[in-house]
Amino acid sequence: MDLAAATILGKLIGAGLAMIGAIGAGAGIGIVTSGAVQAMGRNPDAAGNIQTNMILGIAFAEAVAIYCLVVALLILFVF
């Protein structure tokens, strides 16, 4: 295998491995949403407030997945 092919192979494998971190974010977003939906079911009057905080929580959880995504994109398109 020549160097160019090995580089491409390494890039693709690396990008794939980088996205493993999205597992945690996916689980986190699921937990956040499940909690928010349960809270809304118990107290529908507070739905607006809960929704705001839910989106905030999702944004924090998602940030980790986005770091992984940015790393994967950097590996694929920059290096």
Binding site: A59, A63, Y67, V70
Partner: peptide, 8 residues
């Protein structure tokens, strides 16, 4: 990175 990552 959040905005950039999502949109890109």
């Amino acid at each position: 990175f959040r905005l950039f990552g999502n949109l890109f």
